[in-house]
């Protein structure tokens, strides 16, 4: 099983911990800096040298969702509630669809190989390796022709296909890892093929399916190019709005921008920790799994 992070070679003591801690904190510094800035007041955020000890404030997080746009005016909703909902809704729905279609296909590819099985798998992987910018040109035209631009249906259909190659390769790698002897034994006992899938194979890959789901949701949550060109004001996702925000009037408000980024990345950082053991498989689409 792919588990490099849990199977180190040899042992070292606290000395190595100290060295690794120094390196890790320097490496993580850009993220840490943004998270700290999110809790700072405007003065603290721009202070030099950088303040590491300060009185934290939550006002930046409040103004992500409500803030006064005109000097002295009443606080108004900024629409970020909707954008966060969109990111979650579009991500969740499309990944669920991709996982259902993908699991069926993965089981097929793994247990009932077609003629030219590898060729199909290769072509499926190629669609995912393809630069998104190439696919988006015709898709942009077609979305306009069929009136799908700015609709939930359009972007969810697109993201379903976007997540499908990943789901197939990933779930297939989990099916491939299973011990075939159990299935053969069940088949001997006269179990039907559907029962075999439902009662024996599927329960063994539940954890893998969960990992695939979370991974794909992160990929979708992070996706920028498709969302930039194909979502409208009502279906816009968080990364698109963040990038639009830097160009705008609040671009100079570092606390606010950092608070936004923090809300956007914290779920990803936490989930990464939970997924640590599946990370290698996930980032290589299940092509490497030792």
């Amino acid at each position: 099983m792919a588990n490099p992070s849990n199977r180190p070679i040899g042992k070292s003591g606290w000395g190595r911990t100290l060295g690794a801690a120094a390196v890790s904190i320097v490496y993580f510094f850009p993220v840490l800096y943004i998270i700290l800035t999110a809790f700072k007041t405007r003065q603290d955020a721009l202070a030099w040298p950088v303040k590491f000890i300060f009185t934290p404030t939550l006002e930046n997080f409040v103004s992500v969702f409500y803030r006064t746009t005109v000097e002295g005016g009443a606080a108004e909703a900024t629409g970020f509630g909707l954008y966060f909902f969109n990111s979650m809704f579009i991500g969740g729905t499309s990944v669920l669809l991709a996982l259902i279609i993908g699991t069926a296909a993965a089981y097929g590819f793994s247990r009932f190989p077609l003629r030219g099985n590898e060729t199909y798998l290769f072509m499926i992987l190629t669609t995912r390796m393809m630069p998104p910018i190439i696919a988006i040109i015709p898709i942009f035209v077609l979305f306009r022709i069929f009136g799908l631009s700015g609709t939930y249906v359009g972007i969810i259909a697109l993201y379903t296909a976007f997540n499908l190659p990943f789901s197939i390769w990933m779930v297939k790698s989990f099916f491939d890892d299973l011990d075939r002897d159990i299935e053969d034994a069940a088949r001997m006992d006269g179990s039907s093929e559907f029962r075999l899938f439902r009662k024996i194979c599927l329960p063994q890959v539940y954890a893998g399916l969960a990992a695939t789901f979370v991974f794909a949701v992160i990929l979708t949550w992070n996706e920028f190019v498709f969302a930039l060109l194909l979502t409208g004001t009502q279906t816009r996702t968080v990364p698109v709005q963040i990038v639009r925000t830097i160009g705008g009037a609040i671009g100079v408000d570092w606390g606010l921008l950092s608070a936004l980024e923090t809300l956007f990345i914290i779920p990803v950082v936490l989930v990464t920790f939970a997924l640590q053991n599946q990370l290698l498989r996930g980032v290589t689409f299940g092509t490497i799994r030792r």
Partner: peptide
């Protein structure tokens, strides 16, 4: 650096691995 086992390794590893999972657009920002 991370090839041997040492105390707190798992947690420090998380800090190093985090950038990879972030959004490309977020890293740009």
């Amino acid at each position: 650096l991370f090839s041997t086992e040492f105390p707190l390794r798992r947690y420090l590893l998380m800090l190093v691995l985090a950038p990879m999972m972030l959004s490309l657009s977020a890293v740009g920002v």
